[in-house]
Nucleic acid binder design. Structure first.
Ligand SMILES: NC(=O)c1ccc[n+]([C@@H]2O[C@H](COP(=O)([O-])OP(=O)(O)OC[C@H]3O[C@@H](n4cnc5c(N)ncnc54)[C@H](O)[C@@H]3O)[C@@H](O)[C@H]2O)c1
Ligand SMILES: NC(=O)c1ccc[n+]([C@@H]2O[C@H](COP(=O)([O-])OP(=O)(O)OC[C@H]3O[C@@H](n4cnc5c(N)ncnc54)[C@H](O)[C@@H]3O)[C@@H](O)[C@H]2O)c1
Lengths: 214, 214
DNA sequence: CGAAGTTCGTGAAATATATCACAGTCCAAA
DNA sequence: TTTGGACTGTGATATATTTCACGAACTTCG
């Protein structure tokens, strides 16, 4: 039916559609058109239809998409019946906020292991996760079959830790350290460089607005 | 010389190049080729040259880019001589980690105001920033000429707070709440949806790897 | 100095992604 | 049942972004 390559952006948007139809479902809205769904997600109606179109035909001409069905279909497509184990490395300011965040598990993401080098932190427990020394990483990641990781160590440590994670078999890294990580082909990194994102936003409103000369 | 529209992705990468040449400069490397710079940033040599090409000619055929000059040029292009005031709304787990992060100010981003609704938090100080009630937002944002903001309130509150921010004159929102914000044309939102990013990563390694059925 | 070897800058080509636009389908109402 | 209106699904088109590829500029070295 459709064997074209699916853009990564499409997958990412599918999660947004799912979030939206989940909300609609809660308030007993039964049907939604691509244009309404687009409006709610700040996307065009065509974008919505095209994204869904990669995976089949979910809509009904004349009335739109059945919310319940679309929700189920998206959950199926996106593998929402699965749970992902996640390893967290670097339980500092940011790491501990993430570690205590309950939102992940609602999305099937379970932080099942956390690592740090600071002996004052090792052994402490956050949300049922005991912080382990980094030297235990390899064994634990393999043992718990972990393929996702969150990296929130200082920039200077990030590459070393990434290497350890990859060596241990991790396949994805959500990287908060402001460095470009060097990783093999089969490993996916998503950089979450907050400063950079803010600065990029600022760039596009500069001139119109009010950055101050130092 | 060049009046084509510059891709946002290019701007974002420029910050990466700048980070890299800053490091090179520190260790007294004087010259770097586009292919070396690309290697360090996980980009192609052509990409590097094209990105820089939007802003002029910085390179020297046969030897590459002079690190010091490139650094200065990038700083100029990216407005690194400016400082941006940032407002932070929602000083919870995530917000307080961000508030205490020293990395922002190293990039010319100063969190100069923080807001919350929780009376137990109002009045407390983090890194010289006193947490204020949300009702003071409008006045303070206008008074301090703030155009950037970080939104880390619960999802259900996010749209309301965004409206307040926009009404107060903020032009950019770095949004950590997992909701699609509705904003006017002239306001830029960057979603930082951590769960979604992790799930999207997971999607692309699924099959090859080990999500567990619930 | 001249030749060999690098590397840039940049149009042109290739890819990737988003939008358009409309035939075809379905619904609802009379 | 028929008609009008509301929508989808999807090729075709447009736009955006990246990669290619090569002439020209520059460096180095014998
Ligand atoms: N805190 C923020 O709000 C924020 C914002 C943007 C980016 N970041 C980035 O996120 C990363 C973490 O920031 P943070 O503020 O949480 O820093 P932090 O110093 O509070 O925490 C870092 C943690 O990593 C641990 N660590 C250091 N080396 C390690 C290693 N080799 N293996 C395992 N653990 C190690 C430290 O013991 C510490 O607990 C940094 O790269 C920072 O630039 C943080
Ligand atoms: N904590 C994390 O690691 C994490 C990870 C991913 C996403 N997020 C998202 O970031 C947001 C914040 O998460 P958190 O864990 O820090 O939550 P939190 O509950 O710890 O903090 C939220 C803060 O916002 C304040 N608040 C609530 N309503 C407000 C309003 N109308 N105006 C001003 N302040 C208000 C609360 O008093 C609280 O201090 C949420 O949307 C969450 O989904 C958090």
């Amino acid at each position: 039916m459709n064997n074209k390559k699916i853009p990564e952006a499409t997958i990412s948007r599918l999660f947004v559609y799912l979030r939206e139809v989940t909300e609609l479902d809660k308030v007993n809205i039964r049907t939604i058109s691509s244009s309404d769904l687009g409006e709610r997600t700040n996307l065009s109606d065509a974008q919505v239809r095209k994204d869904l179109g990669y995976f089949g035909q979910f809509g009904v001409s004349g009335s739109g998409y059945a919310v319940g069905e679309l929700k189920q279909s998206l959950e199926k497509i996106l593998g929402k019946d699965k749970t992902w184990n996640v390893a967290m490395v670097g339980v500092g300011h940011l790491g501990s906020a993430l570690l205590t965040y309950s939102g992940f598990s609602r999305h099937g993401l379970e932080i099942v292991a956390a690592f740090d080098t600071d002996i004052r932190k090792i052994g402490k427990t956050f949300e049922n996760v005991v912080i382990k020394p980094i030297d235990d990483l390899s064994k634990i990641v393999a043992g718990k079959n972990i393929s996702l990781s969150i990296l929130s160590v200082p920039a200077r440590e990030a590459q070393d830790v990434a290497d350890i994670l990859i060596e241990a078999g991790v396949k994805c890294i959500l990287n908060f350290a402001p460095v470009s990580l060097n990783v093999p082909e089969h490993v996916k990194v998503k950089d979450m460089d907050l400063s950079r994102e803010l600065e990029t936003l600022a760039y596009f409103v500069a001139g119109k607005t009010n950055g101050k000369n130092k």
